[in-house]
């Protein structure tokens, strides 16, 4: 099926890659500029990186951003996995459809609407805006993603396996922990990683529900960008880009390992 690409096709793809990566490399390049703007590269320096690490506030924000991503991802994975298991166990078609539609609502909703509605929610229940509200919001918009990643694995699962386990005298708990969870494990990991990336990428929702001095990286970059260009932001970008690559690599490593394990189980 793979036929050779024409020269024009290759050129088009090459151009696409160039366009998609140019802004990112442009940012990274200027993080080493000794000048103070993103034009006219003067000479190589690491001073902007030193600035990042000397700024306690920035370090705190970086740590908090990662903390929110990991913890919200974890919460979302637990709730989402249970939710997916619950959804497939609903036998009434109408209920099942309603649950799936609700699930989709949060995925398709514009972030600005999610942010605004959560802001109303948190204010009404009298929650202080800050770490907790950001954490809950991130977990909230990640839950449906986890559900979507886990659901197909559950649907692929063979009913006979569960019946066999029950026939052999396994309790429901055993079925869940020894049969179901191991089978859907790749979906769980994929959901967790998707949740993390959504959390790290989010700006709009966090912008609405944060407060009391709590900030994540994207909100901080927004306020920095509003006061003009500082190459410290470029240095952070480079660090974040490298971190993203590590997460992506980790994701493929874990899912491939899980897939291999799955293949072993099946064999």
């Amino acid at each position: 099926m793979t036929s050779k690409l024409s020269l024009g096709g290759k050129a088009y793809l090459a151009l696409m890659f160039l366009i998609l990566y140019a802004p990112i490399f442009y940012l990274m390049l200027y993080s080493f500029n000794s000048g103070d703007s993103m034009s006219g590269f003067e000479s190589f320096t690491l001073s902007h990186y030193a600035d990042v690490f000397a700024d306690t506030r920035l370090i705190v924000i970086l740590l908090d951003t990662v903390l929110v991503a990991l913890l919200s991802g974890f919460i979302a994975t637990v709730i989402g996995t249970l939710g997916a298991i619950g959804i497939v166990s609903v036998r009434n078609r109408w209920w099942r459809h309603t649950l799936l539609s609700l699930n989709n609502v949060l995925i398709v909703s514009p972030d600005v609407v999610i942010g605004a509605s959560f802001l109303i929610l948190f204010t009404l229940i009298g929650a202080k805006l800050g770490f907790a509200s950001v954490l809950l919001s991130h977990a909230a918009f990640s839950v449906p993603i986890v559900v979507l990643m886990v659901l197909p694995k559950l649907l692929e699962m063979k009913t006979s396996l569960i019946d066999a386990a029950l026939d052999l005298g396994a309790s429901r708990r055993d079925v869940l922990t020894r049969v179901v969870l191991p089978m859907i494990q790749p979906g769980i990991y994929a959901g967790f990683f998707m949740a993390i990336t959504y959390s790290l990428d989010d700006f709009a929702v966090t912008f609405f529900v944060t407060g009391n001095g709590f900030s994540t990286l994207s909100v901080e970059i927004y306020s920095m960008a509003r006061t003009g260009i500082t190459l410290t932001v470029n240095a952070i970008s480079t660090l974040v880009f490298l971190a993203t690559l590590i997460v992506v690599a980790g994701y493929y490593w874990v899912t491939n390992r899980a897939r291999a394990a799955e293949a072993e189980v099946r064999a």
């Binding site: 890659f17 998609l20 940012l27 034009s39 990428d201 960008a225 260009i229 493929y252």
Partner: peptide, 21 residues
Amino acid sequence: ILIIIPSWINLLLKTYAFIGI
């Protein structure tokens, strides 16, 4: 995957790059 990676970079950072570009 290589096409998708840029979409995993924080939106704000990409926007910020264009302010310079």
